[in-house]
Simulated scan of single mutants.
Amino acid sequence: LREVAKLDDPIYKEIYFKERNGLLIKKVRFPIGVVLIIYEARPNVTSDCIGLLFKSSNIGILRGGSDAFYSNMAIKNVLEKASFDSGLDFKPFFVIENTDHRIVDIILKKDNYIDLVIPRGGEALIRKVVKKSKIPVIKHYKGVCHIFVDEDIDLEKAIKVCVNAKVQRPSVCNAVEKILVHQNIARSFLPLLKKEFDKYNVQIRGDKETCKILKGIKKAKEKDWFEEYLDLIITIKVVKNIDQAIRHINFYGSHHTDSIITKKKNNIEKFMQEVDSACCFANISTRFSDGYQFGLGAEIGISTDKLHARGPMALEELTTYKWIVKGDGQIRE
């Protein structure tokens, strides 16, 4: 919350200005309005979202999961008291205290009162919200994140990045789920990678070529390439070149976060331009796909949509805009 407080206020910020035909034309940021956040078991979401919504002058309605109910209520009580102690004469946020799932179904139909819904949680929750909501939804369904290990690499750094992306926190949406390895380095790279993964009990599933190199691993099925495991499981494929890697990512991925490991600058640029994902990285772990890591203070969620917001969402993504035009009696001929 202190990090969010330090950020510039996005409201009334001018994002376009032009003088034309004696008119002063401005495009200015404004709050979206009333934002509903539906989330599951992480109570830090409560404080993060309240801070971001308050800073961006939106009213928040928060509905957390029953597993973190008492933590959510404790955070709500502290922040509610702080808001009134600071002199506010209105409630800037509301936390729904009823854990009955039917409440959510009712609220999702109130598009005349609520401007936006942001669901945070598992794929089942998000799909349910999208299906039932009459209110616009910004979301990502899942994080099927990839790392492509090119042929020209620093071997030690490549292994370090791949291991961190899988094991540092495997249950989150920016953990890597698939690793693609260039065929020219597969025989030298994969045994070293497996040795490190074995230290963390990571289960490896592989395509035909990977199974030839890493004897005894489980053969990947078609559904594995689409799967978000959120666990110590990884699927690995040997690819011919960067073009095959990009095609694979765009077909099987979830357009969340994908990374390339390479020394080739032209391949980095090709990957950035052709991979259709919200976050494209070079030579870093996918775990950096996070609003706080991006310097946004916190995040309200991550979007794989292309309209309004994409990637980690923070203050600016919680705004819309108005066209403000001033003149002196002009008429259009």
Score class of each variant (00 low, 15 high):
D231K: 08
E299Q: 14
F271T: 05
E40N: 11
D154Y: 08
P170I: 05
G22K: 02
K270N: 10
C173P: 08
K270C: 08
G216S: 04
T286M: 01
H256Y: 13
N98V: 06
I300A: 08
I302G: 00
A220S: 11
L180W: 05
A298R: 11
H146L: 03
R120E: 04
A175W: 02
E123K: 12
I59A: 10
K160C: 09
L315F: 10
G206C: 10
A278G: 12
V172R: 11
L23F: 11
G301S: 04
I236N: 01
F197E: 05
T46P: 09
I25L: 14
L125G: 08
K237S: 15
K128D: 13
I302E: 03
R20Q: 14
K270L: 15
K221L: 06
K194A: 06
D305M: 14
F288A: 03
G327E: 00
G295R: 11
V172L: 13
S83R: 01
I11S: 13
G301Y: 03
L155P: 02
S57C: 14
H308E: 06
E333W: 10
K6S: 13
N58C: 06
K270Y: 14
D328N: 15
L307G: 01
G216R: 02
L214C: 05
I153V: 14
G60I: 04
S289Y: 00
Y70T: 14
L318D: 08
D150H: 09
D328G: 04
N72W: 08
R287W: 03
F17Y: 15
G51D: 11
Q330D: 00
L36Q: 07
I324M: 06
K131Q: 13
S303V: 12
L307Q: 11
L36Y: 15
N266H: 13
A68Y: 08
D111R: 15
I213F: 14
T262L: 06
